Amino acid sequence: MGTSNREFEINKNEEEWREVLTPEQFCVLRQHATERPHTSALNKEYAQGTYVCAACGLPLFTSNTKFDSGTGWPSFFQPIEGGIGTTVDKSLFMTRIEVHCNRCGGHLGHVFDDGPEPTGKRYCINGVGLKFIAD
């Protein structure tokens, strides 16, 4: 399922990822887990800034595209151009569009077609996969 490290600019083996990520980050970013809803402090982060990949620091989303979806995960209606990639995820007996970091392949979450205008998209992202850098 998901993405292969061979496709990305940053390639590390499992041991190397474990050295730079917390256990929770490793589970989400490298093993495609999902954090429990309402557990990320970033869900209620409203300051101006940029959300970057927790694994490699690539800018992924800006605070200007963040909205409160009520789902319990940080949600955005548009990524930074070139920041993310998508793959088809057919796990859990359903088909969803997985969102991953374009530089390291880290699993971030999923994108749905129930977001606000202007895109109509909801990028539902695991907060543990992000770091927030205030402006």
Results as ranks from 00 to 15, higher is better:
E35Y: 06
T119V: 08
I125V: 14
G105Y: 01
L60M: 15
V20W: 07
E98P: 10
T86C: 11
E117H: 06
I10A: 14
S91L: 09
E24N: 10
C56E: 13
E16S: 03
A134V: 06
G57E: 12
E45A: 00
E16V: 04
T3D: 13
A54E: 11
G2A: 15
L60Q: 11
T86Q: 15
Y123M: 04
T65Q: 08
F93M: 11
H110D: 06
L108F: 14
R122H: 09
K44L: 02
F77R: 00
K131W: 01
V52H: 03
Y46Q: 12
L42D: 01
E117Q: 11
D135L: 03
R18T: 07
Q31I: 00
E16R: 02
G57A: 14
E35L: 04
K121M: 07
F93T: 00
S75C: 13
T34I: 14
R122V: 01
D68P: 00
R96A: 04
V52K: 12
P116G: 08
T65A: 09
F67K: 06
E35R: 01
R36V: 05
I84M: 05
Y123A: 03
V52L: 05
T87W: 14
F61Q: 06
A55G: 15
T119M: 07
V111C: 03
R122F: 04
H110R: 07
I10E: 15
N5L: 09
S40G: 08
L60S: 02
L29D: 01
G2T: 13
C56Y: 05
F26P: 04
W73N: 08
E98N: 12
L92M: 14
T119R: 07
Q48G: 03
G82M: 08
K44A: 07
Y46T: 07
I84C: 10
F76D: 03
F77E: 04
A134W: 00
E24I: 05
L108R: 13
Y51R: 11
L58G: 03
N64E: 15
T50Y: 09
N43E: 15
V20Q: 13
S40N: 07
N11W: 00
W73V: 13
A134F: 00
H38Y: 14
C53T: 05
N11T: 13
E81M: 07
G72R: 08
V88P: 02
H110F: 01
L108K: 11
R36N: 13
G70Q: 05
E7V: 00
E117V: 01
H100K: 09
T65E: 08
K44E: 12
A55F: 01
G72H: 07
A33E: 15
F8V: 00
R36C: 03
P79T: 01
E9P: 00
R18I: 05
T62H: 08
F77D: 10
Y51K: 05
K44Q: 06
F8Q: 10
G83K: 12
T50F: 10
C101T: 12
V52N: 02
D135R: 08
C124W: 06
H32E: 14
D68N: 12
E81R: 11
Y123K: 05
I80R: 11
K66H: 05
S4E: 15
G2E: 13
P59Q: 11
T119S: 06
Y51P: 03
N5V: 14
G83C: 10
F112C: 02
P59H: 07
D68Q: 06
N126V: 02
